[in-house]
């Protein structure tokens, strides 16, 4: 490591840096107690009311008719409730597409941040290429099913919301390689579980060829996860040894 990734400094957020102020805050809570009866359950009840009354985020666009679908010998059916599969495929497409951009941010970090490791960059570029390949595999699967790969499905939209925190961590110039790889880990963990599920969905839906291609992606994702985990472990152990 050329420079430390974690430093001792003037962090002012805790009670130990303002013991007198905190003591007086606690004194205030005794002088001026809570004025509304109840507890967190009041908040939860309001959430439940809103959930019951809420609309959905949106819908899945209807697939083209079976007539227009490109089918293979083994993928002759559009399955039951095809919109479920289309929605999850849309999610995977969005996730992998964002993943390519997340790895681009990670490459910049690995090149320049505290904890920079040139050897890591090559690995990250390789994973990034895989993510792009996966994006295209999913795009082709959606097209095969007569779906529109340019549409944002509800699950795709939610995936974008989920990725916002990771994006913030990776693109903040102040975060370290270690912090950023930890954010990448959450992505890779989800990616693995999601591909497993998608394979099962594709098989149940009567799309064995699509499922077969997805298995290839899952194998690559398993390697990504192992690589990211190993890097984080080695990096942290090096910092304390």
């Amino acid at each position: 490591m050329s420079e430390p990734q974690v430093i001792l400094g003037t962090n002012r957020t805790g009670v130990q840096t303002s013991p007198e102020g905190t003591a007086r805050q606690l004194e205030a809570t005794r002088m001026f107690p809570a004025d509304v009866p109840g507890d967190m359950s009041v908040y939860t009840a309001e959430r439940e009311r809103a959930i019951r009354e809420a609309d959905l985020i949106g819908s899945v666009p209807p697939p083209a008719t079976t007539k227009g679908m490109v089918k293979t010998a083994l993928d002759k059916t559009i399955g039951k409730a095809p919109e479920v599969l289309i929605d999850k495929l849309g999610e995977r497409l969005a996730f992998e597409r964002t993943g390519v951009r997340l790895y681009e941010a990670m490459v910049a970090k690995a090149t320049s941040a505290p904890g920079a490791d040139p050897a890591l960059v090559e690995t990250l570029r390789s994973i990034q290429a895989d993510e792009l390949e996966h994006m295209n595999i999913v795009r082709e699967a959606i097209e095969t099913l007569g779906g529109d790969p340019t549409a944002m499905t509800p699950c795709a939209d939610v995936a974008g919301v989920k990725a916002m925190g990771v994006l913030q961590v990776l693109t903040d110039p102040r975060t370290t390689v270690s912090q950023s790889m930890s954010a990448i880990l959450t992505i890779e963990l989800e990616d693995n579980a999601a591909w497993e599920l998608l394979i099962e969905l594709a098989q149940k839906g009567g799309h064995p060829l699509i499922a077969k291609r997805f298995k290839h992606a899952l194998e690559q994702e398993e390697t990504h996860l192992a690589t990211v985990r190993q890097f984080i472990r080695t990096d942290l152990l090096e910092q304390v040894s």
């Binding site: 009670v15 840096t17 007198e20 805050q25 205030a28 004025d35």
Partner: peptide, 13 residues
């Protein structure tokens, strides 16, 4: 909230 306030401001009704 005190991570932001740093002990300077009371948190009561």
């Amino acid at each position: 909230a005190n991570n932001i306030l740093q002990g300077y401001t009371d948190l009561v009704p």
